[in-house]
Amino acid sequence: MAQTEPQSVFRLDRINALILVAVFSAAVLLYTKWAKEGKPLFLRKIPGLDAVEEAVGRATEMGRPVLFVPGIAELDEIETIAGVSILGRVAKIVAQYDTPLTVPVRYPLVLAAAQEVVEQSYIEAGKKDNYDRDTVKYVAGEQFAFTANVNGYMMRERPATNIYMGAFFAESLLLAETGNAAGSIQIAGTARPEQLPFFIAACDYTLMGEELYAASAYLSHEPIMTGGLKGQDFVKMIIVICILVGVALAIFGYGNWFIDSFTAS
């Protein structure tokens, strides 16, 4: 009977992807270590995030609430986690100013996470007694029922500031246009390229793509958080160099082996 060669447990055909994961993780960890050691890491300014504190201040002066929508996707979407993380930072500022905050959510898991985050922010700001459990509320599981509710809230309560951070879909323009009509200052952030034009048209500031993921680290002012961003930038530089090398090799007809080394088997 012929014996078959025992197969490796590992997918050797995916070694290229594994190398990229390893390089990426190493870069993030290394920069985080340097950040911990106190090495100064430069972060460019993100005007949309600098405007958050100013916008909350405006709401306080006007005696009107701040509306924060952490996207409309589930908690397993990394954009939602980014949105909830930013909510934590915003809630802390809101708590310090004693400004009312409303956070409508579309999924129960997001509800649980957002409630926890907002409560903790109030505690950290020393305003635990001001925390209202219904600050974060589940509105509806359906996209447009959710949108109708939030739009209705905007027109009735006329929040001074609307912050949209997370994954948004067709409702992006419905929300942003209504907020615009209600006269609110609006700051949006999403990694969905298809929704960016709508936010840019109707909001005062828009965070694009990875700026959303950088926002939590940016607002935290913690060096350990900025390490991750620098690691990410380092890998992006490697990708840019690979693209340029690939283009140059392809132009001169030597590109196939290089391109193949990046393709999934």
Binding site: P193, M208, E210, K236
Partner: peptide, 12 residues
């Protein structure tokens, strides 16, 4: 935007 957002998501 997709590459940037994907790296951002991976880093997060």
């Amino acid at each position: 935007i997709i590459i940037g957002a994907a790296l951002g998501a991976a880093s997060m």
